[in-house]
Design a protein around this nucleic acid. Structure first.
Lengths: 343, 343
DNA sequence: AATGGTTTTGGGAGCGCTCTCATAATCATA
DNA sequence: TATGATTATGAGAGCGCTCCCAAAACCATT
């Protein structure tokens, strides 16, 4: 009963190995009688095909990798990742692919992983979380190794690579416009790290609105931070000295830190300072803040990235494709209402 | 340059396939000259061994699976999982194993995954997150398929399975004892789901302390919940009617909910109600609460579980092993001090 | 120089599957 | 019933590696 092979099943069913293979893989042109007989033997014996042999013969592993580079491993406790993983997992399960997970927590690990990954017969393709300068190494490595690849988040050099992302510039533009529309005058921003495209683009959206408004862009209302709660806290501490009446914070996690700083100064949200975040993570799981924020469709992004990658695997790498998903502003309590802003 | 095989390298280096294989796998008894020559060719050509062929020939995939069953997929946004994943990943990287990730988000997915996983040549072993009744199916499946397995968290039937966990009874006992020592009189508890061993054991630790104290166990100070923030919130809402002066909450996430409820009633922590949580998750990333809690060594648990599994894979499954790690009480602000409790 | 022991190398037989090609069975049509 | 077209099945050649066994090369003895 231990480890049956196709050949064993074939013998028991009185057919050839090829025929059993056809049944297992659901090919056509099998007479019904034979199929039933083979299926019966398979069920009785509990036969499971050997994945490695399959991979070797077919040159397809039915497995894709997800790489979270060093630059994001620090942020890994952010609820963004469980969501992403959920979307990716669901798609993998749906399409019968196995997901190999690579969390790179140090430069040393990166080397090891990069050595192991391009092995033929291991992965059919990879998803790489990106957005940071430091990730170009991994992305380039995959290109060199000719492994089909989809990058999550626009990478810095995107001309020869497929990626999926939202339009961060537009989303930020829309969020900040909302603050303008509500009548806020001194609108500040806490940005993500500016070695990330997300950080850069969200700042660009902000800048665009402020410049269009025509009152001029105050550099001291712009503070770069790092997508962490603590970073948001310190950035807000500094910002409070400049007395903004609204802040566009480039991530929900940083927004939590900013809110903590504001509360410590006994200021009220949104009465004294309005806040808009970015991500729409399930923060309410941990806090009671009704954060106005930009919703990133994280789970959907995970799903779509898998679908895009599988398409790339099936149909060759043709010109790289760029998939931009919609983000939308979710208005809750922290941005205040028009009435409030005017009073 | 495309896909070189051992044979190609052998030809280029003027040796046999076997010799190249020996060099690649770091075997001994290779003359230095030959080794250098082969290594040089490998470097020049960028040769990478074919994983599938290796697996097929050696009957080892160097890959382990991590299964998060349906019962935990709902809790997956809990920061517990990123931490666990981090520990597991690090160990996998260290020992040159690849991690296959299976998040089961529905019964239907479970079937598919269980069909795929026991394939020979896919996984050398699996880690199964557990603690719930519902997971016995998956655990049993692995036993039947004779796949080496380590369960994360004591499963309900643990006699024929290896697992790793902390001593939840002792940890809870210790935490509640601390509250007693501080002088609290009406100590309540919000439990985890009682179809989980963790929920059950933490309640048992609580019960033991209360009974030993001799004032009797008040059933209305015990409320079962579900490890979510919202669950903690509602449980606390109910509990507040019974006027406890301290609450042992069986998870940090629930504690956050409980704290939210307490604040809404304008009660002070710890002056009016003391709180002890469980997990020591990086909650301070999201809130400013200085939560007294029981630290689970989650990352270490991840690491150790991999080591245990690899040991099982190497040395056969012998009698199942049970590894119990230490948890310890981390005293912060929410449990109050002796002074405070007496005043 | 012959003997026996130790390293180092090569050859071959799989591992269990897929996939093409050839053959056999079946069917429809004249 | 013979003919060709169609469908169902089998045989064989790999996929690229590991690992055992035998042969060759090397080494130190006597």
């Amino acid at each position: 009963m231990a480890n049956l092979t196709l050949e064993d099943i074939a013998k028991k069913a009185g057919v050839s190995r090829s025929t059993v293979s056809r049944v297992v893989n659901g090919h056509e042109n099998i007479s019904d009688g034979v199929r039933q007989r083979v299926l019966k033997v398979i069920k009785e014996t509990g036969y499971r095909p050997n994945s490695a042999a399959r991979t070797l013969a077919s040159q397809r592993s039915q497995m894709i990798g997800l790489v979270l580079p060093h630059s994001v491993s620090l942020l890994f406790t952010d609820p963004y990742f469980p969501q992403l993983l959920k979307g990716i997992s669901q798609a993998c399960n749906q399409y019968d692919y196995t997901l190999a997970f690579f969390l790179v927590s140090s430069k040393k690990e990166e080397e090891k992983i990069l050595k192991r990954m391009p092995n033929k017969g291991l992965l059919d393709g990879v998803l790489v979380q990106s957005g940071h300068h430091g990730d170009q190494g991994i992305i380039g490595h995959m290109i060199d190794a000719k492994i089909p690849q989809v990058v999550l988040g626009r990478p810095f050099r995107s001309d020869n690579v497929s990626y999926i992302d939202i339009d961060n510039i537009r989303a930020a533009y829309y969020a900040v416009s909302h603050l303008v529309r509500l009548g806020y005058q001194r609108i500040a921003t806490i940005t993500g790290p500016l070695e990330s495209t997300a950080g850069l683009d969200r700042l660009e959206g902000y800048t665009k609105v402020i410049e269009e408004r025509g009152n001029g862009l105050h550099q001291d209302l712009v503070i770069e931070s790092d997508f962490t709660e603590l970073g948001g806290y310190y950035a807000m501490e500094k910002l409070l000295q400049k007395h903004p009446d609204a802040v566009f914070v480039a991530s929900d996690t940083m927004a939590m830190g900013a809110i903590r700083a504001i509360k410590e100064h006994n200021l009220k949200i949104p009465e004294d300072i309005a806040i808009i975040g970015f991500d729409d993570l399930p923060m309410r799981t941990f806090t009671d803040v009704e954060l106005t924020t930009v919703r990133q469709p994280v789970i959907e992004m995970g799903r779509k990235s898998v679908e895009l990658l599988l398409d790339l695997i099936e149909n060759g790498t043709q010109p790289p494709r760029h998939m931009i998903l919609d983000a939308k502003l979710v208005v809750r309590a922290t941005c205040g209402s028009i009435k409030n802003a005017r009073s």
